[in-house]
Design a binder for these strands. Structure first.
Lengths: 133, 133
DNA sequence: TACACAATTACGAGGCGTGAGGGTAT
DNA sequence: CATACCCTCACGCCTCGTAATTGTGT
């Protein structure tokens, strides 16, 4: 399976590049890190390295702050809630899938019952049915 | 069915009382109303009347702002997300209930098939089974 | 050696709670 | 007519983004 490059976790961009990609001030990225909103990897010399996923997150946080006017405490909670929601949606899909499976199993079981009775019945010349022995 | 008084929508408290009940400044309540967070009913003379539900909401918003430090724009989004979540949970319960129903229906259908075959078979003296005619 | 990063501090704009003042409903 | 409401304006605190400074990594 080929990984989606746009969402890779591989740390690649230094802070300056990341800031330009996200259209933000480098200092802002440090603030976000202190508030545990976007936490990039570090090199041995403690230089930050941002992944594409981090960049996406930065852009999304920007939407929440600039367009909706949410402060960082709010952003944190919103991100948590949306994560919970995605988990919930997964569970939802899962249970629906399970329901389809149950339907199919039940259908097959009914079929099996029918087949079993059919196997036990034989047709006699005059069109009558009898148990096989 | 007796309504839960603690969550009633009936408008009863004037602003001063509501503010005391929620432990907030009356002016704050006006701000929340302007931001469409808590919208009390009004009398003909445009005096605000808060319900118990409104008071509950005020207390909850207070938690979000004071304890979590979320600003009002954030509170608005958080409230929306939690509403969505509750809807999603309802849908979840509903589909689980539906699944139970499907199971039961299928079980009954299997039973019905068995019964039908049993009805078509009769026992002959020598223990053999035949179709009813 | 030059350039970009790390960390801290300071400043300005805006959000939010609180208070004051004048007018109106009950 | 007294009290509590209505509304608007103004002040102070806090948050957040930005800039400046000094030191370090590459």
């Amino acid at each position: 399976m080929i990984k989606d490059i746009r969402k890779s976790n591989r740390p690649v961009y230094m802070m300056g590049i990341a800031a330009k990609l996200a259209g933000m001030h480098p200092q802002t990225l440090r603030i976000y890190e202190r508030k545990k909103l976007v936490c990039p990897q570090r090199t041995a010399g403690s230089t930050r390295l941002y992944s594409d996923k981090d960049i996406e997150m930065l852009k999304y946080i920007q939407e929440l702050t600039r367009e909706l006017g949410i402060n960082l405490a709010g952003v944190k909670v919103v991100l948590e809630l949306e994560k919970e929601r995605s988990v919930q949606e997964d569970r939802f899909d899962q249970i629906r899938e399970e329901m389809d499976k149950v339907r199919e199993e039940m259908r097959q079981e009914i079929e099996e019952v029918r087949r079993q009775y059919r196997r036990e019945l034989v047709v006699f010349p005059k069109g009558k049915l009898m148990r096989r022995y």
